[in-house]
Design a binder for these strands. Structure first.
Lengths: 204, 204, 204, 204
DNA sequence: CATGAATGAGCATTCATTCAT
DNA sequence: AATGAATGAATGCTCATTCAT
């Protein structure tokens, strides 16, 4: 039943299809993309897709699932936990923005549907937002506890961080040139701004 | 030719249609929405829509245009210019988030397409992002000049502000309960965090 | 009821509409032409047409009727009756081909429908083919009787004449350049060929 | 790529569709005929048609192409070249009228559109009129040269011949009963009339 | 498993016709 | 009588999905 070699072949084919789907979805959007578009991109026949996925929508689910699979335990993040708080924010922004840019194509493919389709929305929110949020919240709470951060509401801080990241991606997708030029230095800028604020410090 | 009464009737009908379209688009997304859906929602016949709009896509353009029409010169913002810098951020966040929530339905209707359709993307970016950005940039630059803000790059600060706002809207649309509960107090929280930072101040 | 001035106004308007219809029908064909096309061409509103004609098809009937109205008793033809037989053919071809070229626009408009619509076909055939045919037949029969023509079957001769004329119009509509260049001299050529034949005569 | 068996299946299906299309077009005309009509007539589904033809108009092109395919090199005609001139005309009329009657259905299907659509008109004229015309012209010119025909302009003679044939078909389509009854003997009648003329000969 | 021809439900759009003004 | 906005039935075409090979 679960011949491991068979399983591997199946997974390879699934990935081949999902790769193709992500590319064309990102290019044309979900609905304007036809199954034939995907099949051509994958170099296979239309019907073959249905041997691996129930239907077109299932491809979105598949893409989403892979997005979260990629979201391995963020080792780098965990390492950041031990360092300086400000540095932690740098690492966080850096990591998240990097991940997003990597998966930007896929994100662009599914975000529109996420906004609309309840099931997708919930899946996306839970696996992609909430999970990270919980982790960050506990970190922030801990640092507040330790006095490394002002007594802020961790949940709100985390929303701020996440909103900023996803917002930046949106602006980026929209072709904002400033972001295009400064994408690399944004993490540090954001961390500084957020941690130290924009208020002029003594001596500036 | 341009009988003002006729013109008013025409505009009224156009708005009636765009209202209906925004509602259904927001609910089901652009492509899954049928012209019939919109016509039913507007209480008119299918064909009538085509007396006022070229095609289905034209409805999106129409919705976008109205979004920017609503974007009158933000008087409140201009008033904020004279006050305290931190207060300016409060006003800014408050104003933008208010506007967004008002137009959330419309935004939800067009955002997905904006991400994909180049023409729409450019229109949206220019009329909805760039215009505000320019204004904010000059304000930030002036305050940096005056020493009211640290010597930051205005363009980046503005991207941060705008990304945060649109990001929050996205999280909100996704049904984030924390945001739902605290939407009203977010502007002040954001302004504080951004201006003063999260670093513990002396005496905290 | 039948106020003669009213009647005249009505007829004028009907003709205005039929003129417009014939022009656009000839240009685009019956089905691709919209009522709006006709209204624009006539410089009136769509609805006005329906005050004068039952429906779109009725316009075809109207055009056809006018075609046959134009087909007044062909005086020239009648005059030809008294002359030489060969000359009669010249006059006949000349008259018919002239009429056709005049009404070519209208003919082009209705011929396609005539080929298909039974009612139209019969109307057209009876009023436009048969009437002339009967007249010509009796002339031919008389000339055969008098020995001015070989003992041919008048009905067949007449079909030959009429087929030639309508066939020439078709070739002409199709853009045949030879016909374009020689249209004027065709009647005499046809009459000669038909009456004297192509067989070399003594001494040629 | 071009598997011959596949190719044969494809052609068979194309012909099946074109057959159906020709039938319904002839019956109802091009525009009133729906794709569904054709599909039903062919006993297939609507969508299948689009696997073989770009669009509805393409079906007309297809029908026209087949008409000209049928127009093989007219062997019979070539044989006529060697015989008596008058006999050549008999063969010519016979051959052309036979062909036309065979393809009458198809002709009726496309002729209306030919009159209107420029592309179709040109295709039809070139492939269906001009080709035959050129051949006939050279024959006539040769016979004039040899003194077998009066010194007539070959181009005009050929137009006369072709116009007569197509005109007869039109009258036939219109339901002329005389033609219906005498269709078989028309070729000889036409050839006689044309070659020998209607002028009474010595001794008649 | 892979294929791709066949399917037919579904939709954007058109346009003849109506009718209130 | 003239208008032209409103109507909604009708249709060409698309495309997700099925299934015989």
């Amino acid at each position: 039943m679960t011949d491991p070699i068979q399983q591997q072949l199946i997974n390879a084919r699934k990935n081949q299809i999902l790769d193709a789907a992500a590319i064309v979805f990102a290019e044309k959007g979900f609905h304007p993309t036809t199954i034939r578009d995907i099949a051509r991109q994958a170099g296979i026949a239309d019907g073959t897709i249905y041997n691996y996925f129930e239907n077109k929508f299932d491809l979105l689910i598949g893409i989403l699932s892979r997005l979260t699979e990629l979201e391995q335990l963020p080792d780098e993040l965990l390492q950041g936990l031990r360092g300086d708080v400000q540095e932690f924010f740098v690492v966080t922004f850096d990591h998240r923005m990097g991940r997003l840019k990597e998966g930007a194509e896929m994100l662009q493919a599914i975000l529109p549907q996420v906004l609309i389709h309840p099931e997708l929305r919930e899946r996306f929110y839970r696996q992609y937002v909430e999970r990270i949020a919980t982790m960050l919240e506990s970190y922030v709470a801990a640092q507040v506890e330790r006095g490394q951060l002002r007594p802020v509401e961790p949940k709100l801080v985390v929303r701020l961080v996440q909103a900023t990241i996803v917002g930046l991606l949106l602006l980026h997708i929209m072709g904002d040139e400033t972001l295009e030029r400064n994408w690399e230095q944004m993490p540090r800028f954001l961390a500084d701004a957020l941690f130290a604020g924009l208020r002029p410090r003594d001596g500036e």
